[in-house]
Design a protein around this nucleic acid. Structure first.
Lengths: 340, 340
DNA sequence: CTGTTAGCGCGTTCAG
DNA sequence: CTGAACGCGCTAACAG
């Protein structure tokens, strides 16, 4: 493969000159030479070796992103914002799927550090795990020591820049709305228990019910994976335990879609007999039947802000941005039926 | 940042020994020394610089994937297969979104080459563009010359290993089925015109209609972006031009979902007045109302096969695998109404 | 303006 | 089994 030295030889100039032409912010090379060099570059299909370049301290064009799963629409929307900001900064994004495995997540941070990405965004709620948080904090500190910068999306137990959606407040608003509609028998299709996202949403919802003196016994909170099928499975279990619920809160939209599918299969009318609400407001919420009530999280914005933080010049101060969420009522929620 | 030399100093050994411990396929280092070294590595949170490593010819643990857009469920499913095979091979996947911009796609190939990923999967149909194909062929050849390997998903005009779904055959099967249901007035919600995927699906559908002596005038083929909104927009234009169609074929599922939304908004019953079909069989097809008829493309399998090809030891032979597709009829298609 | 020189951090010879 | 020395491809300092 062609190297800078090859190009220099072919153009009859020194390596340094070729380097100047290629990186040439300044017009420090004669037009005649410059033309000869560019010609040689084209003929040889020369691409400067990014590794050699990074080795001498030049910055990498890449930034890194670690998400749980890009096939999850939540992260897909976040990616859109990330990509927009990165593009504007002339950076290329490399994405890594951790599939919620802490070990893989750490391995990816190491990989991206090894690749010397200057900026790193960690999307996806944090984990309530002391050991993991410590390990991650160490990695992030190492990255910072190398002149890089990491930004988290969601609440984490790791010190670092972060953009945090108001999960608790959104869930509380939803809870209040359902209570106002007369619901008293609630069920929650919950997410993985150790995620801060799960905890915050659950806590907000609980607090709204508590305001009205309504309890939410733990058998009414059924955990599952944050996916459509996870939601379906949890909904089945919930209906076995509490067949008389009139409102189901799924902790994210794909789970809510799974809940709708199960209710339809059982012949329970939504929202006639049971109301259903999700969280996030992913695009599909408008296309299911009935259209899904949910809490809008400005996902694209979240991604854009986090990328901007990660791309900002390093500094000692920790920047944390809190982002509001918004209740969106559609047709899947309605006043509670007289009785079930 | 900690370097290999730092680790060596701390452990009281030579850099070469540290290197051997880290890459140590062989047991060429005493257990005692090895332990000292690993201890130092941990304390310093040392991560070998991937750039320096790549520079001396070692392989990276990373493999690269370039897709149009991971937020498209089609690619998300493909990613699942890719990730599975990569994980089994102990490789980490870095994903790049080209957003269908040829220039960005080429830039990513260069970036990944520069990062010395040994294996590269290019997902997403090819482009009918001579210049682009040539440029890409050059990049892929350069990658091969460096000992790497690229595999394409979909039909491309670039010589290389590939996994190709039977787009044409699937569309033909769908066309025949609709004809058999008595449909005669067709409309197509089409994709970006220069993609081979668009062309192949369109061609297959056309050929099925032609068998029955039915023409498909070009004003009945309305192009749009391969997204839900692109489909909605194209459907609106189609309905203006040809208000009496009884069957709409959207060239992928998200577009079909957009079509359903528009038809619902206009009060046209599906499938009572208009039948709708998509392509790919992404998960959401089961959750829209009515459930969507489509052509199943084994996306996960596509990804897995392509990754396996890219990971296979280099060889001179070109391997191309053709993968069948399968017609899936659900509730969005039905016999043609008597008249409209 | 251009060429020469000296590393960046690592793996890999080659001696010991 | 271990250490010393070299060079991967490039950019940055310094001369000229």
């Amino acid at each position: 493969m062609a190297t800078l030295a090859d190009v220099a030889r072919r153009a009859g100039v020194s390596p340094a000159t070729v380097s100047r032409v290629i990186n040439g912010g300044r017009r420090v090379v004669t037009d005649a030479l410059r033309a000869r060099v560019l010609e040689a570059v084209r003929e040889l299909r020369f691409v400067p070796n990014a590794h050699a370049r990074a080795l001498v301290g030049a910055t990498t064009p890449a930034v890194g992103v670690i998400v749980h799963d890009v096939s999850d629409p939540y992260f897909a929307e976040i990616m859109r914002g990330i990509q927009r900001v990165a593009s504007e900064a002339g950076r290329l994004v490399t994405i890594c799927n951790s599939y919620r495995e802490p070990e893989r997540e750490l391995a990816y941070v190491a990989l991206l550090r090894a690749q010397r990405v200057g900026a790193l965004v960690l999307a996806g709620g944090g984990l309530d795990d002391r050991e993991f948080a410590q390990e991650m904090a160490g990695q992030v500190a190492a990255l910072a020591a190398e002149g890089g910068r990491a930004a988290f999306i969601g609440r984490h137990h790791v010190p670092g820049d972060a953009v945090i959606p108001d999960n608790s407040g959104g869930a509380r608003a939803l809870g209040r709305a359902l209570v106002a509609m007369g619901h008293r028998e609630f069920g929650v299709v919950s997410g993985p228990e150790r995620l801060t996202t799960t905890r915050d949403r659950l806590e907000g919802f609980r607090s709204a019910l508590a305001e009205a003196g309504i309890g939410l016994p733990s058998e009414r909170v059924v955990p599952g994976g944050f996916t459509r099928d996870g939601g379906a499975e949890a909904t089945r279990r919930l209906l076995e335990r509490a067949p008389r619920v009139t409102a189901i809160f799924a902790l994210n939209d794909p789970m809510a879609v799974g809940a709708l599918a199960v209710l339809r299969a059982r012949g329970l009318r939504v929202p006639g007999e049971v109301s259903v609400a999700g969280f996030d407001d992913i695009p599909i919420t408008r296309d299911v039947e009935p259209a899904l009530s949910t809490v809008r999280v400005p996902m694209t914005d979240l991604g854009a802000r986090a990328m901007a933080l990660a791309l900002a010049p390093a500094g000692p101060d920790l920047r944390v941005e809190h982002v509001p969420t918004e209740l969106v009522l559609r047709r899947s929620t309605a006043p509670a039926p007289r009785r079930r």
